[in-house]
């Protein structure tokens, strides 16, 4: 139904340009012992779009993000990034290529302040040597200030000025999710992976988060791949949706197309999701 429809770049109804393929997953299979988490899945992510991955619990969605950012290495299949086949790479190397992420179970640096957490997102843009940081302060200090300015912008953007100095471990859940988004944004990623950015949030918090995601996509032109259970949100903010069930891909297309797909409806009937 769908793949042919997206061979070309296209323009969304609200006028954003969706460009070339940035990331292409080709026939990915991932197994953990006897468990097959991903079964022969192919899909692509295009420049500038918001790409959602949905599916019931245990469908393999998080595993897919973990493959993209290098935490998991698939037994079969190829990952193509910006027109090149990716060899075996470590997660930190992939991060340095401009792929940032958040986690389903928030993974912040709990003992550190909001500001410090978001500053870690800038590390890949900071190059002064240890010796210079320790003994010869000029360049290191300048670098620190420059990057700090960028971080302050993100803090303003996410409206979290009041918790700048608070250790994140003591923040409420919704705010922690926001700080985690801030840390990912701080690296100026070209591809942003969000694993259930709105899980456990109330309606108001979800609206805020949706707005931030759309703004990031709009203002910075960041390509976004996100996993989300809330169908309303997915339909609202995403351009294209991949549907997974039991590790396999059962649907791929615009929100409208996916919503009417029989296989997708069947997978969701009687399946509980949070």
């Amino acid at each position: 139904m769908t793949d042919a429809a997206f061979q070309e770049s296209y323009t969304t109804p609200d006028g954003r340009k969706i460009g070339d393929v940035v990331m292409e997953m080709k026939n990915i299979s991932l197994r953990f012992g006897g468990v097959t988490a991903i079964k022969d899945i192919s899909f692509d992510i295009r420049e500038g779009e918001v790409r959602a991955i949905i599916g019931p619990n245990g469908a393999g969605k998080s595993s897919m993000l973990n493959v993209i950012n290098g935490f998991y290495h698939p037994q079969e299949g190829e990952v193509w990034f910006r027109g090149e086949k990716r060899g075996p790479m470590k997660p930190y190397q992939i991060a340095r290529q401009g792929i940032a992420r958040t986690f389903q179970n928030i993974a912040l640096f709990k003992g550190m302040s909001t500001l410090d957490n978001i500053m870690t997102g800038r590390l890949i843009h900071m190059n002064t040597s240890i010796a210079s940081q320790a003994f010869w302060k000029g360049p290191a200090e300048r670098e620190e200030i420059e990057n700090r300015e960028r971080v302050e912008k993100i803090i303003d953007f996410l409206e979290i000025q009041t918790i700048r100095k608070t250790p994140v471990g003591s923040l409420p859940y919704g705010l922690q999710k926001r700080v985690e988004l801030g840390r990912a944004l701080a690296s100026d990623p070209s591809l942003l992976l969000l694993d259930e950015p709105m899980a456990g949030m109330n309606v108001e918090e979800k609206e805020d988060m949706s707005r931030f995601i759309l703004d990031v996509n709009d203002e910075f032109g960041t390509t976004i791949a996100l996993i989300e259970h809330d169908m309303g949100v997915v339909m609202d903010i995403s351009d294209r949706v991949v549907v997974m069930d039991y590790g396999a891909k059962i649907g791929d297309g615009t929100p409208d197309e996916v919503r009417q797909d029989e296989k997708v409806i069947a997978a969701y009937l009687g399946v509980s999701h949070d």
């Binding site: 640096f109 003992g111 240890i130």
Partner: peptide, 29 residues
Amino acid sequence: LFSQYTKTGRALRAVADDHQAALSVGISL
């Protein structure tokens, strides 16, 4: 002072806190 006010110090604290998250921001363990 080093661990509080330099970027390497910040990376050290990040790794001490959470390995996965540290990797995801590009820190080499």
